[in-house]
Design a protein around this nucleic acid. Structure first.
Length: 647
DNA sequence: TGCTGGTGTCATACA
DNA sequence: CCTGTATGACACCAG
């Protein structure tokens, strides 16, 4: 996580620097600070990664700003993610729109950096976690304090690259100043150091500044907006072309943290077209799915191309999804620092859009079981529960849909995404047969948690563990396929529910299913086992995550305590040294004093036999050295021991 | 071939 | 008593 964070921050900083050179200001510090927050929380303790958060609820909100009460910290998290999306969009075809947004931010930030403390306050609050290293990397853009004057310019100055860079610096400078107010001792040093570096780096730019122009902010915000609108529309095309040229160079430099989405997108699109062409006649909604996945791929790339989350996207419990996202395992690990929650959300979106397709596959696969299904109603996967044994397919469908709506994201742990190996996806991709649509159906039978979403095929049957007997026909059909054992069992027992449903439906509903569907005792037992195993699987994953977190936390504590020990040892040595010096001084002073004193017979006091004692009242008294006392005490002890022995 | 990490599962305790 | 959760232990698999 730390490495990923480092890569990610460096990539963003590089992008920021380059964008600053061409006049686009990127508020990277506010992003980074807000972005790091959930990461730190993940490292330090319970977080969204372990909270059963219904991230699917976020899909109806704007960038997830309305989050589950369990995860209030995700507010900032999604806000930062939105900023990241905007930054990344600079390299995509949506660039002009996003650039316009950045121009808005540029001017407003410039004004506020000059004029208002509000931005500074906000930024300082957001950048509370900003590392000094990040600040140091941005030093190349920094201007000295006088650089504020450069920013006290008219909008035409704001178009200059140097001025924008100066504004970026100024914002950070304001941050430092605010921090100084809050923590003067600790941060003043930092601010001074960075200021010195900035002065040394940008002496030439400082010549442009005029201290006399340092004036309080007086420009109206509306005026700035009008200026902004007047310049952004006209200069947007130029900036667009210019930035596009620069970004073409950036593609090779910026780490894959930002550009990995390209590979993901390409891979997905390629596969989407290839697979879609093969299934065109059997899946009328393929085009829709493809569109959906292209959108999702874009969204995922905006979030982060972490391997785990790429798998999370790719591992939707549908065969088509798995095939569309086959080559995601090559993604860089640096993206692992981003939110798995985003992919949970994406998974939810994908689940919605794929239900229709899945139902088509279900019908073609198992008509004897699904003959009563209402296939043209866009039923979700769970509508398969409304099979021949279902008393009411429509009712069951609605209720089952509620599983997905309420439980898919609510159950499980988003942090599991990063632990899901991509091999499952690759294996599935290589073994998938576009002709056998039933496989696409049964690959959907995975748990609703992200872990299960991501493992439509990775839950390989454990050969060593006891297997419930399967018929030869069933075994031959599925033994080499990547279905979980429970999925195989469920199908062997003709249970019209997916493991996902069984695990995630509420217990009341589960009991209704057990009672109202006329299941045999074996089926009931299997249903209960599947549910228990699914629940326990999630619990085990959660438990392991917690264990890893605990280990990480303990390791960090060990490091902290070791550092503290080192400090204390140094302090101890220093104290001992000081005490020794003071002792020597006292001895010397005692000798001097005693040498000037005389006893009753007029002879000087022997420093070996007398000492000076300072009383509590400040009086200094000459006392004889109590050497015999030590010997006496020792003798007393010896005597006591002898007495004890005698007794 | 042994090691290691990840994962699923079972047994058990607890709420 | 039932259900869900947490966790240790075990086995399997893949790298």
């Amino acid at each position: 996580m730390q490495i990923a964070k480092k890569y990610f921050s460096e990539g963003l900083i590089q992008l920021t620097i380059l964008l600053s050179l061409i006049g686009v200001r990127v508020d990277i510090d506010s992003y980074l600070s807000g972005y790091y927050t959930p990461l730190i929380e993940i490292n330090l303790g319970p977080s969204s990664a372990y909270t059963q958060t219904p991230f699917h609820n976020l899909r109806d909100t704007l960038d997830g700003h309305s989050v589950h009460p369990k995860c209030p910290e995700l507010d900032d998290f999604f806000a930062s993610r939105r900023l990241l999306d905007e930054v990344r969009t600079l390299g995509s075809r949506r660039f002009p729109t996003q650039l316009n947004a950045w121009l808005v931010h540029q001017v407003s930030a410039t004004d506020k950096a000059d004029c208002g403390p509000s931005t500074s306050n906000n930024t300082s609050t957001d950048s509370g976690l900003e590392s000094p290293g990040d600040e140091a990397r941005d030093d190349s853009e920094h201007l000295p304090d006088s650089g504020q004057d450069v920013c006290q310019t008219t909008p035409e100055l704001g178009q200059r690259p140097c001025s924008t860079g100066a504004c970026g610096f100024l914002k950070e400078e304001d941050d430092v100043k605010v921090k100084e107010e809050e923590e003067p001792a600790a941060l003043t040093q930092l601010a001074h150091s960075s200021t010195l570096e900035q002065e040394s780096l940008l002496e030439g730019i400082t010549a442009l500044s005029d201290p006399a122009r340092h004036q309080p902010p007086t420009i109206d915000i509306d005026q700035h907006w009008s200026n902004l609108l007047s310049l952004s529309v006209t200069d947007l095309d130029d900036l667009d072309s210019l930035v596009t040229e620069r970004l073409s160079d950036l593609d090779t430099d910026i780490p894959s943290a930002i550009s990995q989405d390209v590979s993901l997108h390409d891979a997905m699109v390629t596969r989407a077209f290839g697979v879609a062409s093969e299934r065109a006649e059997s899946r009328p909604v393929t085009q829709q799915q493809r569109t959906l996945f292209r959108l999702e791929s874009t969204g995922s790339s905006h979030s982060d191309p972490s391997p785990g989350m790429a798998v999370g996207l790719a591992a939707l419990p549908f065969a088509s999804v798995c095939n569309l996202t086959g080559n995601v395992s090559s993604h860089s690990a640096l993206g692992g620092c981003l939110d798995e929650a985003v992919f949970d959300q994406i998974n939810q979106l994908g689940l919605e859009g794929l239900d229709t397709q899945l139902m088509g596959s279900l019908e073609s696969m198992n008509p004897q079981v699904l003959e009563d299904l209402d296939s043209d109603s866009g039923l979700s996967l769970e509508s398969s529960s409304g099979g021949p044994v279902s008393p009411g397919s429509s009712e069951m469908s609605s209720s089952s849909s509620s599983y997905c709506e309420d439980d898919c994201g609510a159950t499980g742990y988003s942090s599991e995404v990063d632990s899901v190996p991509s091999k499952g996806i690759m294996d599935y991709d290589t073994t998938w047969s576009p002709i056998d649509l039933s496989e696409s159906v049964w690959h959907d039978h995975s748990y609703s948690s992200p872990a299960f979403f991501n493992q439509p095929s990775v839950t390989l049957p454990h050969k060593g563990i006891k297997e419930e007997p399967l018929s030869d026909d069933e075994g031959s059909r599925f033994e080499d396929r990547d279905l979980s054992r429970d999925e195989l069992r469920a199908r062997a027992m003709c249970i019209p529910f997916s493991v996902l449903q069984i695990v995630n439906m509420p217990v009341e509903e589960f009991l209704e299913v057990l009672d109202g569907h006329g299941f045999s005792p074996d089926q009931v037992t299997l249903l209960r086992d599947i549910r228990r195993r699914g629940k326990n699987k999630l619990a085990a994953q959660n438990c392991r995550k917690r264990k890893l977190d605990a280990i990480t936390g303990l390791q960090e504590e060990v490091e902290r305590l070791q550092a503290q020990r080192g400090r204390l040892l140094k302090e101890k040595q220093l104290t001992a040294k000081t005490m020794g010096a003071v002792g020597q001084q006292i001895k010397q002073l005692t000798r001097d004093v005693l040498a000037r004193l005389r006893d009753s017979s007029g002879r000087p006091l022997n420093p070996e036999r007398f000492t000076l004692q300072c009383g509590a009242n400040g009086r200094v008294v000459v006392q004889p050295v109590r050497r015999p006392a030590v010997a006496t005490s020792t003798g007393n002890k010896t005597d006591k021991r002898k007495k004890d022995k005698k007794q």
